[in-house]
Write a protein that binds this DNA or RNA. Structure first.
Lengths: 352, 352
DNA sequence: CTGAAAGCGCTTACAG
DNA sequence: CTGAAAGCGCTTACAG
């Protein structure tokens, strides 16, 4: 834990002052005394000011301001049994958070929606096994009222642990293997994929490959399922899995080009991977979309930054974060799990 | 705050069960009873097991395992007056976190160093004014024992608020205007800049421009000071400030090329900006380093990913995070502020 | 509207 | 080594 307080030789008043860990914080009792009321009354004004007379209210507010009083959350949480904070658990290696703009937007949306309700969001990154253990302990130790679980892989034991501990959880995307036990919010991945592939076909492309997401995530399997819905069981040469990183998109495209040189379009299951695929295509001397058309997924900032700009599938990320927060709050009040599927739609630009 | 518990019509046992907010957590009293000892003894084994007989110790451990007991942090913190967690405050817009690999490494290093001591790190992003207010309230409300402040700008009121509240703080980089009041860890920016510019000169470059960091941060002013140490008061055409983003490096390079077409080298004060500068130079048809040499700063992953690979100044980021944690722990135990400056060194590659 | 009091779940001297 | 007890700073029925 913490280091022991070191003693030094010279001692004396000045030194002692310097070493005071921190100024003693005023307590509710102090405020009550200053305002000439009881602790109960101070508590009432802190919690909405119901059943408090105007003079008392004003005296307390004045005392709070003068003393700089801030409630002690630990004491409050001990009695309310709530912490008024929730965890945002990113079940990915830390670099993913830094590379993928989707997380950025999701995080911002959740922070926003929660802070409107005076709930703090704690960002935790569960990239390694050790992280997951530490975070599992932390969130189940009463530090948070619930958790938003983002980018969960099927083999992740974290979700089972949280559920087992009775912690309210909302997943982003379909939580493979836990669909009935936990609330989740997902974009209609399968339908989005269908729209994209149908569009590619309608534009005359015939040999359509795909770079999927990880097949242990719902985004991975559902988008591939949509591709199959339209094209039937695919030639195995035309399908290759990436991991949503830019680099994986580039590699996958290289390989696709090698195993299926006749391919004239590719549906890449994230914009970031599509940006990588574009690099590979250009290096191979392919014109986009004339030689090979590229379709993405997400409609993130990457889609419009790419050259050519990406035709892609829009995910309503800000609605997703809003719904996640709504469901989590519901779960915290004890509602049974429920799922929300939000529509996706095609956005056409120059790449296909 | 939270939504009120909604009532539904049908009621009944089953429904009530489903709606239980969460399983009642076993308390220390429960464990004590199971183990046939007193609460005090359970507490002692939880806090290191000193002064506990072997049979008692084992009985308690068994009871803990069987009951799945986890301590209630709020109760513990209420008496210990510590939360065993610290905040990592990134005083930058959220996208910066996502773009700049330095933060990534710093964050990972701090997490690591703290978790070895069983202290949790809370990541908070103080990008907007509203964020800063919310975070200021949060960290001073007793949720954390201290704060690591990263990428602080001179006009940021957060640092003053934290100090004023008596919260132990350690800054990354020299906290402009607060050098005497707060502990900080910094790389020797000025000397690093000197090394780079001296090197460029020794390679025969004569018209050396610079793209600086924001001039309200120590990295911005100190690296510029180092450049001046070697070259004297610069021609104003040769100096332009960026904001550490890749895009700002690109723009600054464009402008530098416009106002000083005779320039034959540029010292760019971060690798990420240097990567942007390279794009601008290549677009202008300049060969690197033959027409214009480029020097970076950081020696981050960006340096080796760039083409050509960057000659740069290495910052010892993992030592920086280690020292930050050490100083914060010291500040929490009441030590007066102190500063640690870590050496930087030149790393030569192909860009200069 | 308001105060006195119980209680949230822990830790830590204090006796033994 | 171990138990009984005080106390951390709050909230919330309960009386009045």
């Amino acid at each position: 834990m913490f280091q022991t307080l070191q003693c030094n030789e010279d001692g004396g008043m000045t030194d002692a002052d310097t070493r005071m860990p921190r100024r003693a914080r005023p307590t509710m009792e102090d405020v009550a005394q200053m305002a000439g009321v009881s602790r109960g009354t101070v508590s009432r004004v802190l919690n909405g000011g119901r059943h408090v007379s105007t003079p008392a209210l004003e005296a307390v507010q004045r005392a709070i301001r003068k003393s700089g009083y801030v409630v002690n959350q630990h004491a409050r949480s001990l009695v309310t049994q709530r912490s008024d904070s929730v965890a945002f658990i990113l079940a990915e290696p830390q670099d993913r958070l830094f590379e993928d703009p989707n997380f950025n937007i999701l995080l911002r949306g959740c922070t926003q929606a929660l802070s409107e309700r005076d709930i703090t969001l704690l960002l935790t990154i569960a990239g390694t096994q050790a992280d997951r253990k530490r975070i599992g302990r932390y969130v189940t130790a009463g530090h948070v009222d619930g958790a938003l679980l983002v980018s969960d892989h099927a083999d992740n034991p974290l979700i089972a642990e949280l559920l087992n501990r009775g912690l309210p959880v909302v997943a982003c995307g379909r939580p493979l293997g836990h669909e009935r036990e936990v609330s989740y919010v997902a974009a209609d991945d399968r339908d989005g994929a269908r729209q994209m592939v149908t569009y590619l076909r309608s534009r005359g492309y015939r040999t359509i490959g795909t770079i999927t997401g990880p097949l242990d995530t719902s985004g991975g399997v559902d988008r591939l399922a949509g591709y199959r819905d339209v094209l039937g069981e695919p030639d195995p040469r035309l399908v290759i899995a990436g991991d949503y990183t830019r680099a994986s998109g580039e590699e996958a495209m290289d390989q696709l080009l090698r195993q299926a040189p006749d391919l004239d379009a590719v549906f890449v299951c994230s914009d970031l991977m599509a940006a990588g695929a574009i690099v590979a295509l250009q290096r191979a001397g392919k014109r986009i979309p004339d030689d090979v058309a590229v379709g993405g997924f997400d409609d993130s900032a990457v889609a419009t930054a790419a050259m050519p700009r990406l035709t892609t599938v829009r995910q309503p990320l800000s609605r997703i974060s809003g719904e996640m927060v709504r469901l989590l709050l519901a779960a915290i009040t004890g509602d049974p799990p429920s799922a929300v599927i939000l529509p996706t739609n095609l956005v056409t630009r120059e790449s296909a």
